[in-house]
Amino acid sequence: MPAMEKKKHIKRRRLVMRSSILSVIAVVLGYVFYTNFISGEETSVSEGDEAPNFILTNMEGEEVELADYKGQGVFLNFWGTYCPPCEEEMPYMENQHKEFEDRGVEVLAVNVGESDLSVERFVNRHGLNFPVLMDKEKDVLDRYGVGPLPSTFLINPEGEVENIITGSMTEESIKQYMESIEPA
């Protein structure tokens, strides 16, 4: 093969290869754009949004649906047994749950991705009596756009997210947050 033809052949192969790579990149970018912007499925929740409904299973194996709490304030807390700030605030949440459960404010503690056994041991060790829900596949975590744990969504009686708190809370701040979502 003459040198000139060999150069043209190499250039043609490079062009085909580059075109193929650019095509793959264009398809991937198109898919990402579609799933994040066009498909309409939101992946995070902001203050002022209506809290997305969900159904999760509690420690007794019963289904719990957020919509069942319409008309009440909901202190929706995402947590993990491996999270030191989560462990620190759980007794405070339990104390305030006792204060507010008859006043129309419910604590829903959503554990993210852990085994029943590790969650059960944690709940028993801390004597928790509020509903602990299991988000094994982290679907609700993703739907709410939760980043660091703990994260808490304060949902008013109308079902709107009033406030989002990331990081640990003191018992006094938990009390104030529960008062802010208490039905009138």
Results as ranks from 00 to 15, higher is better:
74 V>H: 02
61 G>C: 10
59 M>G: 14
70 K>D: 15
28 V>P: 08
112 V>Y: 03
115 S>G: 11
103 R>W: 09
81 T>I: 02
134 M>E: 06
21 I>K: 13
76 L>W: 09
127 G>R: 11
105 V>I: 10
49 D>G: 09
23 S>V: 12
90 M>Q: 01
104 G>M: 02
142 D>A: 12
48 G>I: 01
60 E>Y: 10
100 F>G: 15
99 E>V: 02
78 F>Y: 10
64 V>E: 06
42 E>V: 11
112 V>N: 03
126 H>P: 13
51 A>P: 11
34 Y>G: 08
69 Y>T: 03
79 W>R: 07
57 T>A: 10
101 E>R: 00
30 G>E: 04
53 N>Y: 07
54 F>N: 03
83 C>W: 00
110 V>Y: 07
125 R>M: 04
91 P>G: 03
113 G>W: 01
56 L>E: 12
127 G>W: 06
101 E>M: 02
90 M>I: 02
136 K>F: 07
112 V>E: 12
40 G>T: 07
144 Y>M: 00
124 N>L: 13
41 E>R: 10
85 P>Q: 05
26 A>G: 14
73 G>A: 03
53 N>M: 14
32 V>T: 09
104 G>W: 11
27 V>P: 03
71 G>M: 08
144 Y>W: 01
86 C>W: 00
44 S>R: 08
29 L>E: 01
46 S>C: 12
92 Y>T: 04
133 L>V: 08
120 E>W: 08
71 G>C: 07
37 F>W: 13
65 E>Y: 14
87 E>Y: 13
138 K>S: 15
144 Y>R: 00
147 G>P: 04
78 F>D: 02
108 L>K: 02
83 C>Q: 00
139 D>S: 15
30 G>V: 00
46 S>D: 15
73 G>D: 06
85 P>W: 03
113 G>S: 05
78 F>N: 12
138 K>Y: 15
20 S>T: 14
48 G>T: 02
93 M>L: 06
111 N>I: 14
111 N>T: 13
50 E>W: 02
117 L>E: 14
62 E>D: 15
73 G>C: 06
111 N>K: 00
37 F>N: 13
67 A>C: 08
66 L>N: 10
44 S>M: 09
74 V>E: 11
23 S>P: 14
59 M>N: 05
108 L>W: 11
127 G>C: 10
101 E>D: 06
128 L>K: 03
66 L>I: 15
132 V>P: 03
123 V>G: 09
134 M>R: 05
135 D>H: 05
114 E>P: 03
91 P>F: 05
77 N>W: 01
132 V>H: 09
144 Y>S: 00
102 D>M: 08
91 P>Q: 12
58 N>S: 08
133 L>I: 07
58 N>W: 09
120 E>P: 09
72 Q>G: 05
139 D>N: 13
96 Q>E: 15
45 V>Q: 03
56 L>S: 10
133 L>P: 13
54 F>I: 05
133 L>E: 05
102 D>A: 12
101 E>F: 02
68 D>Y: 01
70 K>T: 10
